[in-house]
Write a protein that binds this DNA or RNA. Structure first.
Lengths: 222, 222
DNA sequence: ACCTGAACACCGTTCAAGT
DNA sequence: ACCTGAACACCGTTCAAGT
């Protein structure tokens, strides 16, 4: 695309866009707990009250930040892809966005009617017809897919919050797994069998496996 | 069952059990935002610092409260049920627990390795073999099912948080639906088609429909 | 119209001091 | 060993006052 002039980006004027942008930077670099109106105001060299002229409250700020990230993650997409491939690509787009910005996973499950969730819902829902899902089942099917993605997103984000950035992931999961092995094997037989798989398992692969289970299940309705 | 003497329930001694019990009461009657250590201490006629002798912090308190509710929700279960019926019953048990205690939905997606989540994971995972899922797919399948349930739980809890207790649910959802209809129909065609379904839709039925999609998908792997 | 920053009304958590 | 409650170090949000 041609290099159309971007938004002027004056360093002086405070806008909602600039505030959201700065919030995303803090969330990405310092984590969810570092985003406070005080820290945000300091980074923008203004007073904390000034932010409230452009943003109603923290919920709106987080929703806008999440919508921003999800919006760019879902942009594009191969129009020639099969509906199944399109759904997989959509799901992976969300997954990768959350992998890059774990706080998005927390935010998505906090408010079902925020813009970011609607974008995802529309993305999945819009493919249901092409997948052959009968009209009366499309609402249910798309909802289920959204719930699955948001559920995994939240768990993934919680894990990212818990595992220090530079920590050894496998070692951390190994600790969790040995916790499972310490549970009573009579009441937790399944956890005992899967505990060894936990440290090495690939989140992205497992996520996609879940998407495929859903797609296969959806196919039985069509 | 015979009237076995319950735990002595001395009104004087402070125990973790009594604290968790009181926390659940506050969460149920006054909502998530009402649970503070100050309010909890006041209800138990003690100082807020005393609670820390029995509970490490608020996260542990919430995890214990959720484990309590989920534990009783999953207890029992028909041993003669088919594996498919058992999974559905398990899922409905979680759903109904969250319906009765919406804060559990919030809590479950906050920490993937808390006791309540492990109970659910074990419940689903333990049925995978009987469902005919091959051994190497059981971890993925059970994880996907847990993610779906937790995802819906979080959304449901967020909705319950938003809809005032005595408010007209259909009217509230009607407002959301008209918001969807105000979106650009070119970028949100799917939302436009399902908006009319939103106010009347049955959460529990839709949840179960998702479980069935999943069970059908699992069946294709086995 | 937009910004400033002190002030308000809270939090979770700690800790010296009590029994 | 267990409890008390003031104190600490924060929050999100409001609002009089400025430009």
């Amino acid at each position: 695309m041609p290099t159309t002039p971007r938004s002027p980006r004056r360093t002086d004027a405070l806008t909602k866009e600039r505030i959201v942008e700065a919030a995303i930077e803090i969330l990405d670099t310092e984590g969810e707990s570092a985003l406070t109106f005080r820290a945000l105001a300091a980074r923008l060299s203004t007073g904390s009250g000034a932010l409230y002229w452009h943003v109603a409250n923290k919920d709106e700020l987080l929703a806008a930040a999440a919508a921003d990230v999800v919006g760019t993650a879902l942009a594009g997409g191969d129009p020639d892809a099969s509906p199944r491939a399109a759904v997989r690509a959509l799901a992976l787009g969300v997954f990768d966005a959350i992998d890059a910005h774990p706080w998005v996973g927390t935010q998505l499950s906090r408010e079902p009617w925020q813009s970011a969730v609607l974008q995802i819902f529309e993305g999945f829902g819009g493919r249901m017809a092409a997948l052959g899902v009968p009209e009366e089942a499309r609402f249910d099917s798309a909802s289920a897919l959204v719930s699955y993605v948001l559920g995994l997103a939240a768990q993934y984000a919680a894990a990212a919050r818990l595992v220090p950035k530079d920590a050894d992931r496998a070692a951390f999961l190994g600790d969790i797994a040995s916790g499972w092995l310490r549970l009573d094997p009579t009441t937790y037989p399944f956890l005992h069998t899967v505990a060894p798989l936990l440290p090495e398992h690939d989140d992205r692969r497992q996520f996609l496996a879940g998407v495929d289970v859903f797609l296969n299940g959806i196919a039985t309705v069509s």
